[in-house]
Simulated scan of single mutants.
Amino acid sequence: MSAQNRIFDDLSRLMTNAMGVAQGARSEAETAMKSWIDRWLAERDFVTREEFEAVREMAIKARAENTELRARLDALDSKGADQG
């Protein structure tokens, strides 16, 4: 009976070690894949979400300023036409 328990203990230890190795390999594979993807994306000059949002906000502000300036120019044109 003692020999059978020892076999089960050894088998259990072996399985536990195998699970540790498998988890380590999984972690290394995930890290390698993430590094590869990051490198691939960087080579293609993709922008981050933060960069996109910053440029988007700049464009919205520029459009609003453009509209405001256009209205001021139109007002100046109409005053000039009234005086001329």
Rank of each mutant, 00 (worst) to 15 (best):
L41V: 15
W40D: 08
V21N: 00
N17I: 02
R70P: 04
L69P: 00
A32M: 12
D9Y: 07
E43S: 10
R49E: 07
S78C: 10
S27K: 13
A3S: 09
E53W: 08
R63L: 13
R56S: 11
R72Y: 01
R44E: 05
E65Y: 02
A32L: 11
M15V: 15
A42T: 02
A3P: 07
I60C: 03
A64K: 08
L41G: 06
T48C: 08
K34R: 14
K61P: 13
V21I: 15
R44V: 09
A25H: 02
D45V: 00
M1F: 01
I37Q: 10
T31Q: 14
G84K: 10
N5C: 03
R49A: 10
S35T: 13
A59P: 03
I60R: 09
G80K: 05
G80Q: 05
R13L: 15
A29K: 12
S35D: 06
R56C: 05
A54W: 01
M19C: 13
R63V: 15
E68M: 07
K79G: 00
W40H: 10
A29C: 12
G20Y: 01
I60W: 04
M1I: 12
Q4S: 14
G80A: 13
A29V: 02
L73F: 04
R44L: 02
A3C: 02
A81P: 00
G84M: 03
G20K: 00
A3G: 05
L11A: 10
E51V: 00
G84F: 02
A75C: 02
A81Y: 00
A29N: 11
N66E: 04
E28N: 15
E53Y: 08
W36F: 14
A22G: 12
Q4I: 03
R26E: 01
E65A: 09
T31W: 11
G24Y: 02
E53R: 12
R39Y: 01
R63F: 14
M58H: 14
G84D: 05
R13K: 12
A29W: 07
V55L: 02
R44N: 04
R39G: 00
V55Q: 05
A62P: 12
D38P: 03
F52R: 10
E68A: 09
D38M: 12
T48Y: 05
A18C: 10
I37N: 06
R63H: 15
I60Y: 07
R39T: 13
Q23V: 08
A64R: 09
F46I: 07
I7A: 13
I7G: 09
I37V: 10
F46D: 01
L69A: 08
K61L: 01
A59F: 04
D10A: 14
E57W: 11
L76F: 00
D10Y: 09
A25F: 03
A59E: 14
A71M: 08
M33R: 11
S2D: 11
M58I: 04
R56K: 15
A22E: 02
M15H: 09
R26P: 00
S2T: 15
G84Q: 09
K61D: 14
L41M: 10
F52M: 07
A3V: 03
A22Q: 04
S12Y: 04
L11M: 12
R49N: 13
I7V: 13
A81R: 01
D74V: 13
M19Y: 11
R44S: 05
I37W: 04
T31C: 15
T16G: 15
I7S: 11
S2R: 06
F52D: 02
E57Q: 15
I37A: 05
F46A: 08
E65L: 09
W40G: 04
N66R: 11
A71S: 06
V21R: 01
